[in-house]
Design a protein around this nucleic acid. Structure first.
Length: 762
DNA sequence: CCCGTCGTTATTTTT
DNA sequence: TAACGACGGG
């Protein structure tokens, strides 16, 4: 392990060894960012004598947090004691310990977006769920931007005067219930740190080192959290890539990273620009497009892997042809050049686009998997099961209560349920809001049928409770007559019991029979997942928190070889040997309502997609697309026109009016581009202009080509070099093929695709 | 209680 | 277009 620093390149090593002033590491795609962070954690513990418990490393995904912890521990096992968590998991950890200061019980349950919408619906009677969802979205954004209901800036999120009141009401209800939403996991800790200096002091003393990964995705509230934890004694290091900030619509604030050097004085900046993932032509395309963004710190990726295949841009008539083109491309490639299905990923902007690909791949028996569409925890049966568990943890959870109190039907109508909730809200302070207690009190008033049903429900919950307050295996003695589900260890036995006894299992088993669904097996899967947790109060709370905060499903069936269908957003952090980015049309990607900052974000999204590719990149665009039952003729994506023509190989019919990017050598040479009308628009052409125009050459400056030289190309057949010019990217070769195709390519990007068949004398 | 039909409604989604 | 939820007839 003494050599763990020697595997780093100079910039990486500099980033690892850096200490003192705040540090911003601008880590380009594929530049070994994770290696740097993990090595840095280990280095701090090992060489700088930093107590691992004083290190706080925050990420955005559980996957990233896990990977970071694992890899740091591989270098130094003491790193296990560092606090490596997601922002939200850190917030939950903080609130369980300090929430009491603002009247939050430690047994809170974390509401997901769906629960939030349900709660809002109950606050806003006579509104549709869609409307409630919109308000919920706005409240979530407000929290992301650290705005309270009385903040004047709230109008920037939702200008309607009643929004403020609804938000306030929502906060009151959430507080009465004793639960929190995702936004609270960040916002409330900040409020506590601000209101209680002694708490702030404690945390500032504890965390001497703060590392933040994917900093470009942080929101305003998260920035505020960092500010509260930060002192001049703290070593703060953030890592990110402004070009990969793609979650603005969820409150991510790219300015956090852009303005980091302004917010923390004397910031050092280290750029990691060596890319170990993609070949040069792929990075050239990525760079050419993202360079059109104004709001960026700027960096240029260097391809450590060197040259490779030129990316291909394909013009297609419609989405069916697009799907069959992709399928054929994959099949042909596998046949002629080998490789596996899992080398391939088909990327699209919106989930709806996956359908055509699925149909086509299915038809051709090409194995595929759709990433991200599995919404396991949003399924009705799973939400039912979680609601039962939530009530056990927090008997004030009215959303969970309403969900399962009359499911399956126990003869409890809307009126009775409202009465129970109403009574609970007026109870003595000690049991205020406690719905189970309220149920007990109301029993005498009910009809026989309703009373029996409710008594049965309470008995089941009481029995479940007895299973977790006592030690260990008592659970297995309490099994129910039926055996739809199989109980495993620990908490799974409790879940199986409560699902069977409550009738939820039966309810969904019936549903399975009718609709041929897999609900029971989903419930079984949930129970299985719980077997890792002890059947104790803490185990149950931990299980629920884990589920709320980590919804990525690690399904065990990842081993089979298949093509990946995935939205561009979902590809972040992933890589594939061969990537096809589809639907590159104006209106789809980018959506045509996007302007300014939103357009720049779409461009970053395109950049993310392109930089996923290791070896081969294909871009497809359709003239006609049917969406939502409407056919529309779309222009090729703006981003395609930002790619210099000589950076790509083009297949299919180029629509008239399509122009390639302005910054390549080709566009700089007026003789190649008639009017060169873009030049005037683009001020950045200035520096290049001085190199132009240049006299036509007969021999390229690198000596590889001369006019008249013969060459061969896989797709275009035989041809001749007709023009040679020198651009800022080196010699630019223009060739005329027998098929009539005229192609321009940069000499330095010539691959095996442009084969010289007559050796020049140079 | 079950099934068919109509109407609605469609970005992206780490937590 | 197509998928899903709400509602009403049998």
């Amino acid at each position: 392990m003494e050599n763990y620093l020697s595997v780093l390149n100079p910039e990486q090593r500099q980033a690892v060894l850096h200490w003192g002033k705040p540090l911003l590491i601008l880590a380009g795609a594929g530049s070994g960012k994770t290696r740097v962070i993990t090595t840095k954690i280990a280095y701090l513990v090992r060489e700088r004598g930093v107590d691992p418990r004083s290190i706080l490393a925050v990420t955005f995904t559980n996957k990233a947090a896990r990977e970071m912890a694992e890899r740091a521990q591989l270098i130094d096992s003491r790193a296990a004691e560092a606090m490596i968590r997601t922002f939200h998991s850190f917030g939950a950890w903080f609130l369980r310990r300090n929430g009491a200061l603002i009247g939050l019980d430690s047994n809170f349950v974390i509401y997901d977006d769906d629960d939030t919408v349900t709660l809002l619906s109950s606050i806003m009677p006579n509104t549709t769920r869609a409307e409630a969802a919109k308000v919920a979205h706005h409240i979530a954004r407000a929290k992301d931007y650290f705005l309270t209901p009385d903040d004047p800036e709230l109008a920037l999120i939702d200008h309607r005067p009643q929004f403020r009141n609804i938000y306030k009401l929502y906060e009151e209800r959430l507080k009465a219930i004793g639960n929190v939403d995702f936004g609270d996991l960040i916002k409330k800790p900040v409020e506590i740190l601000r209101a209680f200096p002694e708490v702030r002091q404690r945390f500032q003393d504890r965390f001497q080192v703060i590392l933040v990964d994917e900093y470009q995705d942080s929101n305003v509230a998260q920035f505020e959290l960092l500010k509260e934890l930060y002192t001049s004694q703290t070593y703060l290091c953030v890592v990110g890539d402004d070009d990969q900030s793609i979650y603005r619509f969820r409150g991510a604030e790219v300015r956090n990273i852009l303005e980091f050097p302004d917010r923390f004085s004397e910031t050092d900046i280290i750029r990691l620009e060596r890319n170990y993932r993609s070949t040069a032509p792929i990075l050239a395309v990525a760079g050419a497009v993202v360079d059109n963004n104004q709001g960026r710190l700027g960096k240029t990726l260097q391809a450590e892997r060197g040259n490779g295949k030129l990316p291909t841009l394909v013009f297609l008539p419609d989405q069916e042809t697009e799907a069959s083109f992709c399928a054929e491309l994959i099949e042909k490639s596998l046949r002629s050049r080998g490789g596996t299905y899992s080398d391939w990923a088909i990327l699209y902007r919106t989930n709806a686009q996956s359908l055509t690909f699925e149909t086509e791949l299915l038809r051709r028996h090409i194995p595929y998997k759709v990433v991200g569409s599995l919404k396991f925890y949003e399924r009705e049966e799973i939400k039912d099961a979680l609601a039962l568990l939530s009530i056990m943890v927090n008997p004030r959870d009215e959303i969970a209560f309403k969900r399962v109190i009359n499911k399956p039907a126990r003869g409890l109508g809307q009126v009775t349920i409202d009465k129970i909730i109403e009574a609970a809200s007026h109870a003595e302070p000690a049991s205020r809001g406690n719905l189970l207690e309220s149920c007990r009190n109301i029993l005498p008033e009910l009809s026989k049928k309703a009373r029996n049903g409710l008594e049965g429900f309470l008995r089941i919950l009481a029995q479940s409770r007895s299973m977790i307050t006592t030690e260990g295996d008592v659970c297995k003695n309490s099994s129910v007559a039926s055996d739809r589900l199989t109980a495993g260890d620990g908490l799974s036995a409790l879940i199986v019991y409560i699902l069977e006894a409550s009738g939820i299992a039966e309810y969904h088993a019936t549903e399975d029979e009718i609709a041929g669904t897999q609900r029971l097996s989903n419930l079984q899967e949930l129970a299985n997942a719980a077997s890792l947790y002890p059947a104790t109060e803490e185990g149950l709370a931990e299980f629920l928190e884990h589920i709320e905060l980590d919804r990525s499903l690690e399904s065990g069936e990842e081993s089979n070889d298949s093509v990946t269908l995935i939205t561009v957003h979902n590809t972040k952090g992933l890589e594939f040997r061969k990537v096809i980015i589809t639907g590159l049309e104006q209106g789809i990607f980018p959506r045509d309502d996007k302007q300014d900052e939103d357009l720049e974000e779409e461009r970053r999204l395109f950049y993310v997609g392109v930089t996923r590719a290791k070896d081969e990149l294909y871009l497809t665009t359709c003239a006609l697309r049917r969406m939502y039952g409407r056919a529309s003729y779309n222009q090729p994506s703006l981003f395609l026109s930002e790619i210099p023509l000589d950076y790509i190989k083009i297949l299919g019919q180029i629509p008239r009016g399509f122009k390639s990017g302005p910054k390549s050598a080709s566009i700089c040479d007026p003789s190649l581009h008639g009017a060169g009308q873009r030049d005037a628009e683009d001020g950045r052409l200035g520096p290049y202009a001085r190199q132009l125009p240049r006299a036509p050459r007969t021999v390229s400056s690198d000596g590889l080509w001369r006019i008249g030289a013969s060459l061969f190309h896989d797709d275009y057949g035989y041809g001749q070099v007709v023009r040679i010019s020198e651009g800022p990217e080196g010699p630019l070769i223009e060739a005329q093929f027998e098929t009539g195709k005229q192609v321009r390519f940069l000499s330095k990007y010539q691959s095996e695709r442009f084969m010289r068949i007559e050796r020049d004398g140079y």
